[in-house]
Design a protein around this nucleic acid. Structure first.
Lengths: 338, 338
DNA sequence: GTTTGGCACTCCCTGTCCAGGAGTGCCAGT
DNA sequence: ACTGGCACTCCTGGACAGGGAGTGCCAAAC
């Protein structure tokens, strides 16, 4: 494929993203210094359409890019434009004011939404990629405990535990020491194995209690892993003509389903630094008209993902730069709090 | 005002809520067994319009209720229809499966959204109406602590504390004992006073550390109080013709602002069991076209509010019943976990 | 005095038609 | 290989008319 044809595609993508209207041959030849006439552009456009990169909403309208066209643009044409110095400073300052993990996530998701003018999604640090920092047992009544687990990423999980027999203060201290000895510093992915042997290590009279505790512990490391996700910027779905072809409904519904959001952020095993899924490259049916840009983050290794969701007609260079920058800053912050 | 006129108003409200279309005199006299002709209804409607309870979108259209009309309907005409037995069972089961406070709030807000087909908002138990159940100090590095506060409603707050000098294990134990002795069981509203005296009670060599700790403690009980709110059901804004006169944007934006949501749930001091704010009775400008139904909840005394937001044209009896029922169940659950 | 049927009137809604405009495809000429 | 010209297609917006729903008012009936 011709170099000029690529330039024409770039012009179409850029103009269409900017104006949200089909772009015609005259506009391309005038606004972009290609040095050729509109008629020539028309020939190139016919070729690009034939090849599936652009399409016409109807005869006698301008062209708009297809998903395939955007893909080519992202892969070969888009020059990522880094954030301005002012933006970088703002990101840095806003995120460094966070007081705990919850706050980091909340601020991150808002920041992303604001920078990209799109819907932002941030996954809380995944439990099974974290390790245990501390386990705390608080006795509420003699037969009722509260279990609090703190991970190295700062995430806090709490559970109630009903125990079969009454416990003394010393019993609680014993149990606390036991679980911390066994689990502190261990990766949660390894935890189930350790937890299974927990009851056997307790004093005989505490066996029953320890196994009740083990059951709840297992639940909190296995059952609800992955689930937590924060969303912001839903209002951006209504920007200008975005409106997602009027089918706002399913999108809003999907945004409230953790399962769908996790799918959106990509299979947890993906360690790719940055992923762009355009249109039908997306697995979730409701997002066939959308593009999702995601990045992994974490101190050293990836512990979670974040991303933004927007119309396929989005400002790719800007969005990609923003997601990448924010993911980096968040990783830095987690590193510091380690 | 005539009894029959009230019946006409009720008919208009009910039909309009059901069909979302202006209702005419003929429809009223036919569908509701008033025993009078359309012409008579027309006279009554002229009166109701004069008195400000209903209005015409334009000449030669049917009538729709005004905010004043809905108000009268709610105060004098609506017979609250309790939830069906099946619904009550479903509510009960769904909520009793919650595993911690976070889960209770999440489930509650979803339940409300689903029952009422509207946007639901639930405030986390307000910190300054709770009391301290337990304070935990975890040492991360010799000069860095993690403070975890657990309240009687099950809410968990965590903060990092940088301390001026290196601490031994015993120092940490000492501090933990001190803060728990002083604060356990105390209402957070009283906490600032107690915290102020905290540093003075520590061993001399721990004074500096204790006052750093006190600063952070104060922050966590004062600064971010009230703030946390959960939202669900935003997709319901797009139901049928709801769309809020096409101005979806400001509503979605407002729903992401904690401050606005707190205003929506009503001044924190309101202890009223159930509040209905219709149209301009609402203080928040963006919600002039909306009705907000809120209820307080809590074990014994009110510790937070929950509510739903919908178009003024909503099913008042059903919505009110749902909000009240859910608030009661949640209160029961908090009572049990006390 | 209240209720009723009748009637003229108003206004919205829908569909049709038409002119204007933007953009294309193709062809012949450079 | 590029360009200018030209006929053609299709969308868009305004104008206009007909049908329908609902009203207000009036005179007659209960």
């Amino acid at each position: 494929m011709d170099d000029r044809k690529l330039e024409v595609l770039r012009a179409i993508v850029e103009d269409y993203v900017a104006t949200q209207e089909p772009v015609g041959s005259k506009a391309v030849s005038q606004r972009h210094a290609l040095g050729v006439s509109a008629a020539t552009v028309r020939n190139d456009m016919a070729y690009l359409e034939e090849a599936g990169y652009i399409q016409q909403p109807h005869t006698s309208a301008g062209r708009i890019p297809t998903a395939k066209g955007y893909r080519l643009f992202v892969d070969r044409l888009g020059k990522i434009k880094p954030l301005s110095a002012a933006e970088r400073r703002a990101v840095h300052r806003f995120l460094s004011e966070a007081i705990d993990l919850d706050d980091v996530v909340t601020r991150t998701v808002r920041l992303l939404a604001q920078l990209t003018h799109q819907v932002a999604v941030v996954q809380y640090p995944s439990l099974n990629r974290s390790s245990v920092r501390h386990l705390e047992l608080v006795s509420l009544t003699p037969t009722r405990l509260m279990l609090v687990m703190i991970t190295d990423t700062g995430r806090v999980e709490q559970r109630y535990v009903e125990v079969p027999s009454e416990l003394t203060e010393d019993d609680v201290l014993d149990l606390r020491r036991l679980v911390n000895e066994q689990l502190q510093g261990k990766a949660l992915a390894d935890a189930p194995r350790i937890i299974a042997g927990l009851a056997g290590l307790a004093r005989p009279e505490l066996r029953a209690t320890a196994s009740a505790l083990a059951r709840v512990l297992l639940e909190s490391v296995v059952a609800r892993t992955e689930e937590r996700v924060a969303v912001a910027g839903a209002a951006n779905l209504t920007r200008n003509g975005n409106f997602f072809a009027g089918s706002l409904r399913p999108i809003l519904e999907a945004l409230e389903e953790e399962v769908v959001l996790m799918q959106l952020l990509g299979r947890a095993d993906s360690n790719a630094l940055l992923t762009v899924r355009i249109g039908d490259e997306n697995e979730v049916a409701d997002f066939r008209e959308a593009t999702v840009v995601t990045a992994g983050y974490g101190p050293g290794s990836v512990v979670g993902h974040m991303g933004v969701l927007g119309p396929t007609r989005m400002d790719y260079p800007g969005t990609i730069a923003a997601v990448r920058a924010v993911a980096r800053y968040v990783s830095e912050i987690l590193e510091q709090n380690r």
